[in-house]
């Protein structure tokens, strides 16, 4: 589904990603771990198409399409989703209008008519239940006045609404208490299907108790220094990163 080959990216001339190779297949969950400043969030941003980063080398294929040629909205319409580490507040745009706009823009791309009001409401209700979100959230401004946990739940809710093929979750667990973490993880597990895939970027093993990864990658200084099965996360939790960095 996703093939990252020799990806290099920089910001203001400073190289952050120094040659990344990752291959994600449908039905898989990949975890990317690594110390602060190793390039995890940069990788997520580059994949989603944030143009403050410059890709200097390498290629990314998403279901055979060259992802790097596409704008962020085109990538989303192809079925890519980024769950933000710091979801943005948009006062004046209600959650419901935001989602309706997003869904209809994506439907337009697929030559589908705009979603009907009844269909949309049904969808909202179902997907809000996935993350145990109160219906009062739908009329509120996107993320405005939401707590850290509510913002992250809103990310998972949006993912549920948009039904992406590949979701990249950038530190969705940061700032969550244990209950919120469980809800977020349960949301991801409910949305997991044989034809979609997840890349979960995280600092801690904690989240991986709930979302079981097929592959764990350790990113350090812009490179993947180790890729293994789920037991790698446990080892990192026990021993830290130093043994990998100094290996």
């Amino acid at each position: 589904m996703l093939e990252i080959k020799g990806l290099h990216a920089s910001i203001n001339g400073k190289e952050i990603l120094k040659g990344i190779d990752i291959s994600v297949k449908a039905g898989e969950v990949h975890a990317i771990m690594g110390p602060n400043g190793s390039g995890k969030s940069t990788l997520a941003s580059v994949l989603a198409g944030r143009d403050t980063f410059e890709v200097t080398q390498g290629e990314v294929l998403f279901n055979g399409t060259n992802l790097l040629d596409l704008s962020p909205e085109e990538r989303a319409r192809e079925g890519l989703f980024l769950g933000f580490q710091y979801p943005v507040e948009i006062p004046g745009v209600s959650n419901v209008n935001f989602m309706k706009t997003a869904i209809n823009e994506q439907r337009k791309f697929r030559n589908l008519p705009p979603v009907t009001a009844a269909e949309f409401l049904k969808m909202m209700r179902e997907k809000m239940a996935v993350v145990e979100m109160d219906s009062s959230f739908s009329s509120r401004g996107v993320n405005v006045g939401f707590s850290g946990g509510e913002k992250k739940r809103n990310e998972i809710f949006q993912m549920a609404m948009l039904e992406p093929k590949l979701a990249i979750l950038d530190e969705t667990d940061s700032g969550l208490d244990i209950d919120a973490l469980r809800i977020v993880a349960a949301g991801v597990n409910k949305l997991k299907r044989p034809d979609n895939a997840f890349v979960v970027i995280t600092h801690y093993q904690r989240l991986l108790d709930y979302i079981i990864p097929d592959v764990v990658h350790v990113l350090y200084d812009g490179k993947i220094i180790k890729s293994e099965g789920k037991e790698l996360a446990l080892e990192v939790e026990k021993r830290g990163y130093d043994w990998l960095i100094n290996a």
Partner: peptide
């Protein structure tokens, strides 16, 4: 903020408007 909206499939022009 623009990137956030575009990452949901909303076009750049529509994101600016919002």
């Amino acid at each position: 903020g623009l990137f956030y909206m575009r990452s949901r499939g909303i076009s750049g022009a529509e994101a600016k408007l919002l």
